[in-house]
Design a protein around this nucleic acid. Structure first.
Length: 276
DNA sequence: GCCCAGGAGCCCG
DNA sequence: CGGGCTCATGGG
């Protein structure tokens, strides 16, 4: 039996119960996906599938190559589906270019061609080059010694690394506890009535930080679960009829179930209720 | 053809 | 400080 978000009046409790609901429904997600866990890399018939997840293994990333791949992936997936980003990542790997050393010497133009599938490839090529030169000056071993606040500040100074990418790097590549907010987070919590969708990144992040224990694994799963929920159900055009929050969500789009008996001709299957 | 996808920078009031 | 524009491929 799911605990319904609406039962709790306070924002804090909503955030706690939302996590429990999502986890119960979707189970652990095993983020961040890595190519070495992906079957597509070794099995061409699996094209289109992305299986690089590693549920319940929180030792990942376990080396600097893992961490580097996550950082590059974080840039490649900016405002882009993971499918397209992963293709670009795969392309880099297959051309033996997915390393700090190789990306240091490759030209932005050549790099752009390799990551074409991820979209915005000219911009992203420059961003990756910026990340690489940053890492050459600030090795991962050094970054790991910084306080989260200082680490975030350094990452944000990289041109092409904004709040979400910086926090993704901190949480998923460096395994430090910081909550990643994205468009999905605002959309889901906005529709559920927990926050206003127009709230700023920092506001929403602070809310999560104040509500949850500062645990890397928890932040990891929560963000991944929000993505899972939003990719499949709380999409731009939401699929409320199969959503686990279909009974409690104030913004749900009600779709009348098809009945076996003949409806009146005026009745349509899709009736949209909009509250304003 | 249209809409959307795990954003960020820049410019402008 | 917030809103609007640009960047761009690939899938539904």
């Amino acid at each position: 039996m799911l605990i319904q978000v609406k039962l709790d009046k306070t924002t804090e409790n909503s955030i706690l119960f939302l996590y429990k609901d999502l986890l119960k429904h979707f189970k652990t997600q095993g983020w961040w996906p890595l190519l070495r866990f992906s079957e597509e890399k070794v099995n061409p018939t699996n094209r289109g599938k992305y299986t690089g997840y590693h549920p319940n293994n929180y030792d990942i990333p376990e080396n600097q190559d893992d961490a580097f791949e996550i950082m590059v992936g974080a840039i490649l997936t900016q405002n882009t589906s993971w499918v397209n980003a992963e293709k670009a990542l795969n392309n880099l790997h297959n051309n033996q270019m997915l390393s700090l050393e190789k990306l240091e010497v490759i030209s932005a133009e050549t790099l752009a061609e390799l990551i074409r599938s991820s979209g915005y490839y000219n911009q992203k090529a420059k961003k990756i080059k910026n990340l690489v030169s940053f890492l050459n000056k600030n090795p991962i071993s050094l970054l790991n010694q910084l306080a989260i606040k200082d680490l975030r500040e350094k990452l944000l100074a990289i041109k092409g690394v904004g709040p979400e990418t910086a926090d993704s790097i901190i949480l998923y590549a460096l395994k430090q506890p910081i909550f990643v907010v994205d468009a999905y987070t605002k959309r889901l919590l906005g529709r559920l009535g927990v926050i206003k969708q127009t709230e700023s990144y920092d506001h929403v992040q602070t809310l999560f930080h104040q509500t949850l224990p500062q645990e890397t694994a928890l932040f990891n799963e929560y963000h991944a679960l929000i993505v899972q929920q939003c990719v499949h159900f709380c999409t731009a055009k939401p699929k409320c009829e199969k959503c686990l929050f279909r009974d409690s969500c104030p913004k749900k789009i009600l779709i009348k179930p098809k009945k076996k008996r003949v409806l009146k001709k005026s009745a349509k299957n899709e009736t949209i209720h909009k509250k304003k």
